[in-house]
Amino acid sequence: MFEATFNQASILKQVLEATKDLVNDANWDCSAEGIALQAMDSSHVSLVSLSLRGDELASYRCENQISLGINMNTMTKILKCAENNDRTIIRADDDADVMVFVFESEGRDKTSKYEMKLMDIDSEHLGIPEQEYSATVQMSSKEFSRIVRDLSTIGENVEITVDKEGITFGAKGESGSGTVSLKSNPSVDEGSSNITIDLTDSVKLNFALRYLTFFTKAAPLSDNVSLSLSADVPLMVEYAIGDVGFIRYYLAPKIDD
């Protein structure tokens, strides 16, 4: 039996918003430790990895490991039936073919219950190697969303350069080009870009903005985002989910043909 209780529906709603455009169907792998999901997008360009720790949830139990095959769009629709502040319980019996959702209103005077059919999903599980990155940049998640949105009006790809000056995002298109640079500046002045850069080697890599746009759907989960880069390996974009866990996205670089 698997059962997880979230004090508010909003975390699950936000997790689904952050994944449903990238992944249609995914196995939610539930164990005694918590909930994990790993899935590639349909083009196999990017990978999303979600982790929610059971001991940081309002309550959690999972006696036997269970993989719950979920259509992300269906789950998104069911979660829309909950108010953000509803206490939310998700539950599945061992060998169940449905997941049960219970939403309790703040005043406990309204309870809604939904059942969602589970699916058999054949998914490849990739081993993500431990990686020391040449550069890790922490910045405002809103700022990152803004830069991705702005540069998407210029071109399809972004060149990200990190050196000791800071981080620069650049895009080129048929009609022009644009760059946005953020200086590495430990000042805590109001209105400063407030980024921190952990750098061992300068890096310059190219990525498809289309996928970064999908990743920025996770911005409501966290005020900050961290970008980790090394030459010739996938970019890792991480949003913390409070103390409960994280959502990490990996994006393969564009390479010279």
Partner: peptide
């Protein structure tokens, strides 16, 4: 010209 790499090329199956 740059081409898109696949994520599966980087992570072990």
């Amino acid at each position: 010209k740059k081409k898109q790499a696949s994520i599966a090329n980087f992570f072990k199956k």
